[in-house]
Amino acid sequence: MNPALLLDPLFAGPFLTGLMFAMLLPLLGCYLRLRGEWLAALAFAQTAAAGSLLAMLAGLPMVFGGLAAAGLAGSLKHAFDGSSHTTQGAAYGLLLLLGWAASVLMVSNLPLAERIGQALFDGQLYFTDQSHLISAAALALASLFVMRLLSQRLLLAHFFPDFLRARGLSGRRAQLVFDLLVAGALALATMSLGVMGAFALIFVPPLVAFAWGGGWRQCLLLATATGVAIYVLAFALALSLDQPFSPLCGLLLVAFAVLSGVLRRLSAGR
Protein backbone atom coordinates (compact mmCIF):
# COMPACT_ATOMS: atom_id res chain seq x y z
CA MET A 1 0.00 0.00 0.00
CA ASN A 2 1.35 3.41 -0.92
CA PRO A 3 0.10 6.13 1.49
CA ALA A 4 1.39 8.79 -0.90
CA LEU A 5 -1.51 7.91 -3.21
CA LEU A 6 -3.90 9.54 -0.72
CA LEU A 7 -2.03 12.81 -1.21
CA ASP A 8 -1.99 12.58 -5.00
CA PRO A 9 -4.03 15.58 -6.26
CA LEU A 10 -5.93 13.19 -8.53
CA PHE A 11 -7.30 11.29 -5.53
CA ALA A 12 -7.23 13.97 -2.83
CA GLY A 13 -10.54 15.52 -3.95
CA PRO A 14 -12.46 12.23 -4.07
CA PHE A 15 -10.84 11.18 -0.77
CA LEU A 16 -11.99 14.37 0.97
CA THR A 17 -15.47 14.11 -0.56
CA GLY A 18 -15.89 10.60 0.81
CA LEU A 19 -14.37 11.66 4.13
CA MET A 20 -17.15 14.23 4.60
CA PHE A 21 -19.75 11.49 4.22
CA ALA A 22 -17.74 9.08 6.39
CA MET A 23 -17.97 11.64 9.21
CA LEU A 24 -21.58 12.69 8.62
CA LEU A 25 -23.47 9.50 7.76
CA PRO A 26 -22.58 7.53 10.93
CA LEU A 27 -23.64 10.51 13.03
CA LEU A 28 -27.05 10.70 11.33
CA GLY A 29 -27.31 6.92 11.45
CA CYS A 30 -27.20 6.99 15.26
CA TYR A 31 -30.40 9.03 15.39
CA LEU A 32 -32.03 6.74 12.80
CA ARG A 33 -31.06 3.69 14.82
CA LEU A 34 -32.35 5.27 18.02
CA ARG A 35 -35.82 5.33 16.45
CA GLY A 36 -35.42 1.92 14.79
CA GLU A 37 -35.63 3.58 11.36
CA TRP A 38 -32.40 2.38 9.74
CA LEU A 39 -34.32 0.73 6.88
CA ALA A 40 -35.57 4.19 5.88
CA ALA A 41 -31.95 5.09 5.02
CA LEU A 42 -31.78 2.37 2.38
CA ALA A 43 -35.15 3.49 1.00
CA PHE A 44 -33.90 7.09 0.76
CA ALA A 45 -30.68 6.06 -1.00
CA GLN A 46 -32.53 3.85 -3.47
CA THR A 47 -35.15 6.53 -4.17
CA ALA A 48 -32.39 9.13 -4.63
CA ALA A 49 -30.76 6.91 -7.25
CA ALA A 50 -34.05 6.60 -9.13
CA GLY A 51 -34.59 10.37 -8.95
CA SER A 52 -31.07 11.04 -10.24
CA LEU A 53 -31.61 8.78 -13.23
CA LEU A 54 -34.97 10.36 -13.98
CA ALA A 55 -33.44 13.86 -13.83
CA MET A 56 -30.63 12.84 -16.16
CA LEU A 57 -33.12 11.49 -18.69
CA ALA A 58 -35.10 14.73 -18.43
CA GLY A 59 -31.95 16.74 -19.12
CA LEU A 60 -31.81 18.15 -15.59
CA PRO A 61 -28.86 18.07 -13.16
CA MET A 62 -28.80 14.64 -11.52
CA VAL A 63 -28.17 16.09 -8.09
CA PHE A 64 -31.49 17.95 -8.20
CA GLY A 65 -33.35 14.78 -9.17
CA GLY A 66 -31.69 12.84 -6.37
CA LEU A 67 -32.39 15.51 -3.77
CA ALA A 68 -36.00 15.97 -4.93
CA ALA A 69 -36.75 12.23 -4.91
CA ALA A 70 -35.09 11.68 -1.53
CA GLY A 71 -36.86 14.75 -0.15
CA LEU A 72 -40.18 13.38 -1.37
CA ALA A 73 -39.37 10.04 0.26
CA GLY A 74 -38.50 11.89 3.49
CA SER A 75 -41.85 13.69 3.43
CA LEU A 76 -43.69 10.43 2.73
CA LYS A 77 -41.89 8.78 5.62
CA HIS A 78 -42.97 11.63 7.87
CA ALA A 79 -46.61 10.79 7.09
CA PHE A 80 -46.05 7.43 8.82
CA ASP A 81 -44.34 8.85 11.92
CA GLY A 82 -47.33 8.31 14.19
CA SER A 83 -47.86 4.73 13.00
CA SER A 84 -46.72 1.53 14.67
CA HIS A 85 -43.21 0.23 13.98
CA THR A 86 -44.68 -2.57 11.86
CA THR A 87 -46.51 -0.12 9.61
CA GLN A 88 -43.47 2.15 9.38
CA GLY A 89 -41.23 -0.80 8.45
CA ALA A 90 -43.71 -1.81 5.74
CA ALA A 91 -43.79 1.76 4.37
CA TYR A 92 -39.97 1.91 4.16
CA GLY A 93 -39.94 -1.50 2.48
CA LEU A 94 -42.45 -0.34 -0.15
CA LEU A 95 -40.49 2.86 -0.74
CA LEU A 96 -37.31 0.84 -1.17
CA LEU A 97 -38.98 -1.47 -3.69
CA LEU A 98 -40.41 1.49 -5.60
CA GLY A 99 -36.97 3.14 -5.92
CA TRP A 100 -35.33 -0.12 -6.93
CA ALA A 101 -37.99 -1.08 -9.50
CA ALA A 102 -38.00 2.38 -11.12
CA SER A 103 -34.19 2.45 -11.32
CA VAL A 104 -33.81 -1.04 -12.78
CA LEU A 105 -36.55 -0.43 -15.36
CA MET A 106 -34.86 2.78 -16.49
CA VAL A 107 -31.46 1.11 -16.64
CA SER A 108 -32.86 -1.85 -18.59
CA ASN A 109 -34.77 0.15 -21.18
CA LEU A 110 -32.74 3.29 -21.73
CA PRO A 111 -29.15 2.93 -22.93
CA LEU A 112 -28.26 6.38 -21.59
CA ALA A 113 -29.33 5.36 -18.11
CA GLU A 114 -27.45 2.08 -18.11
CA ARG A 115 -23.94 3.41 -17.56
CA ILE A 116 -24.95 6.09 -15.07
CA GLY A 117 -27.24 3.67 -13.26
CA GLN A 118 -24.43 1.20 -12.82
CA ALA A 119 -22.22 3.98 -11.44
CA LEU A 120 -24.93 5.06 -9.02
CA PHE A 121 -25.42 1.57 -7.64
CA ASP A 122 -21.70 0.71 -7.47
CA GLY A 123 -20.39 4.13 -6.48
CA GLN A 124 -18.14 6.45 -8.45
CA LEU A 125 -16.05 8.08 -5.77
CA TYR A 126 -12.88 8.27 -7.92
CA PHE A 127 -14.77 10.26 -10.56
CA THR A 128 -16.14 12.94 -8.25
CA ASP A 129 -15.01 16.49 -8.91
CA GLN A 130 -14.68 19.71 -6.97
CA SER A 131 -18.41 20.42 -7.08
CA HIS A 132 -19.05 17.15 -5.22
CA LEU A 133 -16.48 18.11 -2.59
CA ILE A 134 -17.96 21.56 -2.10
CA SER A 135 -21.51 20.25 -1.78
CA ALA A 136 -20.38 17.46 0.60
CA ALA A 137 -18.44 19.93 2.79
CA ALA A 138 -21.34 22.41 2.84
CA LEU A 139 -23.77 19.64 3.73
CA ALA A 140 -21.51 18.34 6.51
CA LEU A 141 -21.14 21.79 8.06
CA ALA A 142 -24.85 22.58 7.76
CA SER A 143 -25.75 19.19 9.21
CA LEU A 144 -23.52 19.64 12.23
CA PHE A 145 -25.14 23.00 12.91
CA VAL A 146 -28.69 21.66 12.44
CA MET A 147 -28.03 18.56 14.54
CA ARG A 148 -26.79 20.69 17.43
CA LEU A 149 -30.22 22.31 17.42
CA LEU A 150 -32.22 19.14 16.82
CA SER A 151 -30.45 16.60 18.98
CA GLN A 152 -32.13 17.28 22.30
CA ARG A 153 -35.60 17.55 20.76
CA LEU A 154 -35.14 14.23 18.93
CA LEU A 155 -33.95 12.50 22.10
CA LEU A 156 -36.75 14.03 24.17
CA ALA A 157 -39.32 12.93 21.57
CA HIS A 158 -38.05 9.37 21.94
CA PHE A 159 -37.56 9.11 25.71
CA PHE A 160 -40.13 11.59 27.01
CA PRO A 161 -42.85 12.03 24.35
CA ASP A 162 -45.52 12.84 26.94
CA PHE A 163 -43.23 15.25 28.78
CA LEU A 164 -42.64 17.09 25.51
CA ARG A 165 -46.38 17.20 24.75
CA ALA A 166 -47.13 18.42 28.28
CA ARG A 167 -44.88 21.42 27.53
CA GLY A 168 -46.96 22.20 24.46
CA LEU A 169 -44.04 21.16 22.26
CA SER A 170 -43.96 18.66 19.44
CA GLY A 171 -41.22 16.38 18.20
CA ARG A 172 -42.81 16.14 14.76
CA ARG A 173 -41.26 19.25 13.24
CA ALA A 174 -37.81 18.28 14.46
CA GLN A 175 -38.37 14.80 13.05
CA LEU A 176 -39.40 16.20 9.65
CA VAL A 177 -36.30 18.43 9.47
CA PHE A 178 -34.15 15.46 10.45
CA ASP A 179 -35.78 13.20 7.83
CA LEU A 180 -35.18 15.78 5.11
CA LEU A 181 -31.58 16.21 6.25
CA VAL A 182 -30.99 12.45 6.11
CA ALA A 183 -32.70 12.25 2.71
CA GLY A 184 -30.52 15.09 1.37
CA ALA A 185 -27.33 13.61 2.81
CA LEU A 186 -28.08 10.20 1.32
CA ALA A 187 -28.99 11.71 -2.05
CA LEU A 188 -25.60 13.45 -2.25
CA ALA A 189 -23.73 10.48 -0.79
CA THR A 190 -25.34 8.14 -3.32
CA MET A 191 -23.86 10.26 -6.17
CA SER A 192 -20.34 9.48 -4.99
CA LEU A 193 -20.46 6.35 -2.80
CA GLY A 194 -23.32 4.53 -4.50
CA VAL A 195 -26.53 3.23 -2.94
CA MET A 196 -25.04 0.46 -0.84
CA GLY A 197 -21.83 2.34 0.01
CA ALA A 198 -23.86 5.19 1.46
CA PHE A 199 -26.16 2.75 3.27
CA ALA A 200 -23.18 0.83 4.72
CA LEU A 201 -21.77 4.03 6.24
CA ILE A 202 -25.07 5.12 7.76
CA PHE A 203 -25.98 1.65 9.06
CA VAL A 204 -22.89 -0.23 10.26
CA PRO A 205 -20.95 2.31 12.41
CA PRO A 206 -24.01 3.04 14.60
CA LEU A 207 -24.63 -0.71 14.89
CA VAL A 208 -21.17 -1.12 16.41
CA ALA A 209 -21.31 2.08 18.47
CA PHE A 210 -24.68 1.17 20.03
CA ALA A 211 -23.16 -2.03 21.36
CA TRP A 212 -20.09 -0.38 22.91
CA GLY A 213 -21.14 3.18 23.73
CA GLY A 214 -21.51 3.92 27.44
CA GLY A 215 -23.51 7.08 26.76
CA TRP A 216 -24.96 9.04 23.87
CA ARG A 217 -21.99 11.36 23.27
CA GLN A 218 -19.59 8.45 23.43
CA CYS A 219 -21.78 6.56 20.96
CA LEU A 220 -21.72 9.45 18.47
CA LEU A 221 -17.93 9.72 18.73
CA LEU A 222 -17.48 5.97 18.39
CA ALA A 223 -19.74 5.77 15.33
CA THR A 224 -17.97 8.67 13.63
CA ALA A 225 -14.52 7.29 14.47
CA THR A 226 -15.53 3.86 13.13
CA GLY A 227 -16.90 5.35 9.91
CA VAL A 228 -13.80 7.47 9.31
CA ALA A 229 -11.29 4.72 10.19
CA ILE A 230 -12.92 2.09 7.97
CA TYR A 231 -13.37 4.63 5.18
CA VAL A 232 -9.69 5.63 5.18
CA LEU A 233 -8.62 1.99 5.27
CA ALA A 234 -11.01 1.07 2.46
CA PHE A 235 -9.91 4.00 0.31
CA ALA A 236 -6.23 3.14 0.73
CA LEU A 237 -6.83 -0.57 0.09
CA ALA A 238 -9.01 0.07 -2.95
CA LEU A 239 -6.35 2.30 -4.48
CA SER A 240 -3.43 0.01 -3.82
CA LEU A 241 -5.28 -3.17 -4.82
CA ASP A 242 -7.04 -1.48 -7.75
CA GLN A 243 -10.48 -2.48 -6.49
CA PRO A 244 -13.81 -0.59 -6.56
CA PHE A 245 -14.11 1.47 -3.37
CA SER A 246 -17.74 1.01 -2.25
CA PRO A 247 -17.94 -2.81 -2.15
CA LEU A 248 -14.58 -2.95 -0.40
CA CYS A 249 -15.74 -0.39 2.16
CA GLY A 250 -18.97 -2.36 2.66
CA LEU A 251 -17.00 -5.58 3.11
CA LEU A 252 -14.66 -4.01 5.69
CA LEU A 253 -17.58 -2.55 7.60
CA VAL A 254 -19.36 -5.90 7.73
CA ALA A 255 -16.14 -7.63 8.85
CA PHE A 256 -15.69 -5.01 11.55
CA ALA A 257 -19.30 -5.42 12.73
CA VAL A 258 -18.86 -9.21 12.96
CA LEU A 259 -15.58 -8.82 14.85
CA SER A 260 -17.23 -6.31 17.19
CA GLY A 261 -20.15 -8.70 17.78
CA VAL A 262 -17.80 -11.59 18.61
CA LEU A 263 -15.77 -9.42 21.00
CA ARG A 264 -18.96 -8.16 22.60
CA ARG A 265 -20.15 -11.70 23.23
CA LEU A 266 -16.79 -12.72 24.64
CA SER A 267 -16.68 -9.73 26.98
CA ALA A 268 -20.28 -10.34 28.09
CA GLY A 269 -19.50 -14.00 28.81
CA ARG A 270 -16.62 -13.07 31.11
Partner: peptide, 27 residues
Protein backbone atom coordinates in the same frame (compact mmCIF):
# COMPACT_ATOMS: atom_id res chain seq x y z
CA UNK B 1 -47.96 27.24 33.32
CA UNK B 2 -45.18 24.67 32.81
CA UNK B 3 -46.32 21.06 33.18
CA UNK B 4 -44.12 18.02 33.62
CA UNK B 5 -45.53 14.54 33.09
CA UNK B 6 -44.13 11.18 34.09
CA UNK B 7 -45.63 8.47 31.91
CA UNK B 8 -46.54 5.07 33.30
CA UNK B 9 -44.77 3.11 30.53
CA UNK B 10 -41.22 4.28 29.72
CA UNK B 11 -40.14 3.60 26.11
CA UNK B 12 -38.07 0.54 25.25
CA UNK B 13 -34.42 1.20 26.12
CA UNK B 14 -32.86 -2.18 25.38
CA UNK B 15 -29.71 -1.80 23.29
CA UNK B 16 -29.68 2.00 23.42
CA UNK B 17 -26.44 3.71 24.49
CA UNK B 18 -28.05 6.18 26.88
CA UNK B 19 -26.85 6.47 30.45
CA UNK B 20 -28.54 7.93 33.52
CA UNK B 21 -26.70 11.26 33.19
CA UNK B 22 -27.89 11.60 29.58
CA UNK B 23 -31.49 10.97 30.62
CA UNK B 24 -31.48 13.53 33.42
CA UNK B 25 -29.85 16.13 31.16
CA UNK B 26 -32.73 15.82 28.68
CA UNK B 27 -35.29 17.26 31.09
Amino acid sequence: LQISLQQQQPPAIDGLPINATDLLALT
